[in-house]
Amino acid sequence: MFNLFKSLVSGKAFPRIADLERAYLEGSASLVDLERRQREIDQGLFRRSSFDF
Rank of each mutant, 00 (worst) to 15 (best):
F46Q: 06
R39K: 07
R37W: 02
V9H: 11
S49I: 01
R22N: 13
F46C: 06
E21V: 07
L4R: 14
S30T: 14
L20I: 09
F5T: 02
R37A: 04
F2Q: 13
E26L: 14
F53I: 06
F2T: 13
L45S: 01
S50D: 08
D52V: 05
E26I: 06
K12C: 01
R48T: 03
L31N: 09
R22K: 15
I17W: 02
V32L: 08
S49C: 04
Y24P: 03
R16M: 05
E21Y: 02
G11K: 04
A29E: 12
V32G: 05
R48V: 03
R37G: 03
E26S: 14
R39E: 10
E26W: 08
D19Q: 10
S49A: 03
D33C: 02
D42M: 14
R48N: 07
S7I: 09
S10Y: 06
V32S: 04
S28Y: 02
K12P: 00
E35T: 03
R37K: 15
Y24H: 07
L8D: 06
Y24R: 03
R22G: 06
A29D: 07
S28N: 02
F53R: 13
I17A: 05
L8I: 08
D33G: 04
L4M: 15
P15D: 12
S50R: 09
E26M: 14
Y24G: 00
D33V: 03
G27V: 03
G11D: 04
R48C: 02
Y24E: 03
L25A: 06
L8S: 10
S30D: 11
F14W: 09
K6L: 12
F53E: 13
E40A: 13
Y24W: 04
R39M: 08
S10K: 14
E35F: 05
F51I: 07
F53M: 14
S49W: 10
L34Y: 07
E26R: 14
R22V: 05
K12T: 10
L4V: 15
I17S: 08
S7V: 09
L4I: 15
A23M: 10
R16H: 08
P15A: 10
L8H: 12
A13W: 10
R39W: 04
L4A: 15
R22T: 14
G27W: 01
L8Q: 12
I17P: 00
R16L: 09
S10G: 04
S28W: 02
K6A: 12
A23E: 15
F53D: 13
G44R: 06
S28F: 01
L31K: 07
F51Y: 11
L25Y: 07
D33S: 06
S30Y: 01
F5L: 15
F5W: 10
K6P: 00
V32Y: 00
Q43M: 12
R16Y: 05
M1D: 14
F53Q: 12
E35S: 06
Y24N: 01
F51T: 11
R36K: 15
S49E: 05
D42W: 02
N3Y: 08
D52L: 08
D42L: 12
F5I: 13
E35L: 11
A23C: 08
S30F: 01
S7F: 05
F14I: 13
S50N: 11
D19N: 12
E26F: 05
I17H: 03
L20Y: 02
N3P: 00
E21P: 02
I41P: 00
A23D: 13
F14Y: 11
N3E: 11
I41Y: 01
V9G: 08
A23T: 14
R16V: 00
I41A: 06
L45Y: 09
Y24L: 03
G27F: 04
R39A: 14
